[in-house]
Design a protein around this nucleic acid. Structure first.
Length: 441
RNA sequence: UCCUCGAUAGCUCAACGGUAGAGCAUCUGACUGUUAAUCAGAGGGUUCCUGGUUCGAAUCCAGGUCGAGGAGCCA
């Protein structure tokens, strides 16, 4: 027995020859004299509903004629396989009932600019490409969690409101916390997860994260969702193996289960199919040498002295040298002092960006021992491996970098129906996401 | 914060010193196989704002507002 009273269009093939009642929204309508074609959308799929004037009463035909784009309605008819129907099946309509009328729907089937669409984001997500993006995003999230669960990790949620900045380097959103002073929207769950790791061995947190920085790059966002695994007794190389398998598992699962959506997005999947472990790895020294030799190939890419950090063009360059392989991982990079123990030289803490060709990069991996034990007031002398995978609707990092137009689904916050959300200067716009998508294709 | 680009009909754009235009959308009519239908007709404008140059400004100049792309910051 069905859990829900309506028949999902996606399951329509099982009802061939039967009469069903579908509930959904009018995606498009074409009239042709005594014949009306209605594309009905219920969120699961589209189906073509055909209204023949001779098969219905004048009143029902008039109702069908009156349907506007995005009118919500119930349509009853007989399911029929037909090669002329876009999905292979169509509904021979016997009854149409309007549930909620629609008028002046702003998004026509024709082209629109990004700015306009962003102002109607709550309606934009009804369109096919946005559907594909959000389905892929959901698949990435599910794949990430299920893979970690299967490896023995336990999800360990961390607070959203925190007392202080975790790493002291980012601006945070402050809010009054009762009469106890300021609290801040979470920057990271890292400190809590490190404690959890000492308790469970393998843990991860996954939740919204906030940075009050008006950044305007493809890797910096006001808010995003981040998954942060921590594992005890893992060395740097163990961590890299974990990351490579993690990212690959997510990519391969999306390829397997969401190929239709990737097709909708016109995504070239050949670069995704190559993402399988093990990834090529180069050392920091090799990366510096590579940049020294090839920096002129990318505009704005200058050689950097040993010990300095990579910029965006450097990572782009490094990744481009491994284009025929899945990923490259520059390991043993002596950087990121802010995340390393003050008792350690910053130049001894390994750090490994995963460079996804040709442009994206996933941040990851600061192994630290002294800092962790000190913070946790615990004498376990373990190395820990950590990595961050950002699965934001707006992020293009890590897995979503592989499906970059997923970034355009949400800009920064969920809109309330009927009230367009003001754009913020720090969001990742769909056009930017799409431009990233085009460069990745 | 810095650099670059942009703002004209509901939407996407053209006109680049001389009458404000097209396609789509909307409305009216025709059509039994459309699927971004097609055909015929109609309505639709504070050319972002303020000031300047000019006989004349959507167009050129200055300032401002808003938006987009890039850099840095980082995850």
């Amino acid at each position: 027995m069905a859990l829900l009273p309506t028949t999902a269009i996606a399951a329509i093939a099982a009802f061939d020859g039967q009469e069903v009642t579908l509930a959904g929204w009018v995606y498009n309508k074409t009239e042709k004299g005594r014949l009306i074609f209605i594309q009905l959308r219920d969120g699961s799929a589209l189906i073509q509903c055909v209204v023949f004037k001779k098969n219905v009463s004048d009143q029902i035909f008039a109702v069908a004629q009156s349907l506007a784009q995005e009118t919500s309605c119930r349509i009853t008819g007989t399911v029929r396989a037909d090669e002329r129907a876009p999905s292979g099946f169509e509904l021979d309509v016997s009854d149409v009932q309007v549930v909620g009328a629609s008028s002046d729907y702003p998004i026509s089937p024709k082209e629109h600019g990004v700015e306009f669409l962003m102002e109607h984001r709550h309606l934009w997500i009804r369109s096919s490409k946005q559907h594909a993006l959000l389905r892929i995003r959901a698949e990435v999230i599910a794949a990430a969690q299920e893979w970690l669960n299967a490896q023995g990790f336990i999800r360990f949620d961390s607070p959203i409101l925190t007392a202080t900045a975790a790493e002291g380097t980012s601006n945070l959103f402050a809010t009054e916390y009762f009469d106890l002073g300021n609290a801040y929207l979470a920057q990271t769950g890292q400190l809590y997860v490190e404690s959890g790791m000492m308790s469970f061995g393998r843990v991860y947190c996954f939740g919204p994260t906030f940075r009050a920085e008006k950044s305007k790059t493809r890797r910096h966002l006001t808010e995003f969702w981040m998954i942060e695994p921590e594992v005890a007794f893992a060395e740097h190389d163990d961590n890299l193996v974990l990351q490579e398998n993690f990212v690959s598992a997510i990519v391969q699962r999306v390829l397997e289960r969401r190929s239709d959506d990737l097709t909708t997005l016109e995504r070239d999947i050949t670069s995704l199919e190559r993402i399988v472990p093990p990834f090529p790895r180069i050392s920091y020294d090799e990366a510096i040498a590579l940049i020294e030799q090839h920096h002129h190939e990318i505009e704005g890419c200058q050689p950097i002295p040993w010990g300095e950090d990579f910029g965006a063009p450097h990572e782009t360059l490094i990744a481009s040298k491994f284009e025929n392989q899945s990923l490259s991982s520059a390991s043993q990079v002596p950087l990121r002092p802010s995340t390393c123990s003050p008792t350690h030289s910053a130049l001894k803490s390994p750090y490994a960006p995963i460079c996804l060709p040709p442009r994206a990069t996933a941040r990851s991996s600061v192994a630290r021992s002294a800092s962790t034990t000190r913070r946790c007031s615990n004498n376990v002398s373990s190395n820990t491996g950590s990595m961050s995978l950002i699965t934001s609707g707006t992020s293009i990092c890590a897995a979503t970098a592989l499906f970059p137009t997923a970034a355009s689904a949400w800009a920064s916050s969920a809109p309330s129906p009927g009230s367009p959300v003001p754009a913020t200067s720090a969001k990742l716009s769909p056009s930017r996401a799409n431009s990233i998508a085009s460069t990745l294709n």
